[in-house]
Design a protein around this nucleic acid. Structure first.
Lengths: 236, 236
DNA sequence: GTGTTAATATGAGTACACTCATCTTTTGCG
DNA sequence: CGCAAAAGATGAGTGTACTCATATTAACAC
């Protein structure tokens, strides 16, 4: 059924790569030219992708365009990112890490009561992620479905989701230690993660100015939720 | 940029369609041969698709295969379903409707208290939807993301979601009338719909025998939830 | 420098969802 | 019946994410 793959004769690029940089004749320079190039290329890809995603949206942007803009061959893109989706996911990976770092650096937020803490975190996250609003739905929500196919290459939705859950667990454990909430174990992590996702989906569909509806909902949900827990709703 | 579409000369199918059925020479038979054929074709497509999806999964099944198995041309499939995704969605559409009908036909469940009612409904739904477990994640969860592109052809995730929400609203209004819960308005519909989605995602990832973990979670969540509402947790 | 090897880049090729100009069948009308 | 128009079916063609055999280059040994 599948026709045998034919291989074409390599044409010969001649003046192949139009310009790597410049014919810099400094052959044995500083260690790790490879690593440097790689970094630069990855950065170029991300820059190109972000610009195009912002301008035309995720689906309307082709990998060909990204490659062209990043000045690499089409195939090279897939040496850096397994799929187009993974490329998009990279931004959320970055922003989540930023969010975690922000939390760890800010003493005030760390010592705030749980509702304020969560409100602050979500607000910070949504602020940072807002530029990607157009394509967040296309990739991020897949975290919900199980993915049986193993992922030989780095990044993956599941991995991102896992990192997020570990951070949530950290937050919850702190609150449990301070006896703000009863111990809820893994269920608490799952529930809070899902609640967070609910906020994001609401935010995505929120057409109100400045997404104020989302913030109101969040405030309301946190008030209800913590009130519920402190009144012992958990131990039924 | 876009190259002009070139049209090839039609070859001529000669003994074109191998066999429509048999050369039945009953030209002016019962009214609506068109309609009958259409129905049959649609049924054949659905049958073929379901078998293939079950055997090989959603992503590994090609539209070409489905067409071949349904004995239609590739293009014809898209006269019946806008996208491959919509084709898969059709099964959920059917099952949701079945679930709604089941509810309306069963007097016992209609008069049961809210938690039992919800438990029964979810159980019924999951039972019916279980054959599609493999590909439910691939299509159903998209209901969460906003879809700006209008849908000129029938079925769509949003439409399915809407139907679901209207049913939820019906359930909630009944409970409000019976004063089982305080009036929650649109927020209640949204929250319950999200809760339902949470159960489905949990169910998808549930590896326990007979998905018993999901049923336990559901029971627990319903107990907590209704207890919360009846204790007046809602009016904060 | 030259030679060797491992890492990386390349782009023609592939697979597959989906389109559309054209062909075929049904329907309705006389 | 015969004919015209509408509905529907058809499959070559298209766009695009992704693959993979081959080419190029960095790194290291001498």
């Amino acid at each position: 059924m599948a026709p045998q793959a034919k291989r074409r004769a390599r044409k010969k690029p001649a003046s192949g790569r139009s310009a790597k940089k410049a014919p810099k004749k400094v052959p044995k320079r500083a260690a790790g030219k490879r690593a440097r190039n790689k970094e630069q290329t990855k950065a170029r890809i991300l820059k190109a992708a972000l610009e195009l995603f912002r301008k035309k949206g995720f689906h309307k942007t082709t990998t060909k365009e990204i490659s062209r803009k990043a000045r690499i061959a089409e195939g090279t893109l897939f040496n850096y990112f397994k799929t187009k989706e993974d490329l998009a996911l990279y931004f959320f990976e970055t922003e989540l890490q930023n969010c975690i770092d922000w939390y760890h650096r800010d003493d005030y937020i760390q010592s705030a009561p749980l509702p304020e803490k969560l409100f602050g975190l979500v607000q910070h996250y949504l602020d940072r992620v807002e530029p990607y609003e157009d394509f967040i739905g296309a990739v991020y929500l897949r975290a919900l479905q199980p993915r049986s196919k193993l992922n030989p290459l780095s990044l993956d939705v599941q991995e991102l989701r896992l990192r997020e859950l570990m951070f949530i667990r950290e937050i919850l454990e702190e609150a449990e230690d301070k006896e703000e909430i009863p111990p809820m174990g893994e269920f608490g992590v799952y529930a809070l993660g899902l609640g967070f996702l609910a906020v994001v989906t609401y935010w995505l569909n929120d057409g109100s100015a400045g997404k104020e509806n989302t913030m109101a909902l969040l405030d309301r949900a946190l008030t209800i939720g913590t009130g519920f827990l402190s009144r012992g709703g958990w131990e039924w």
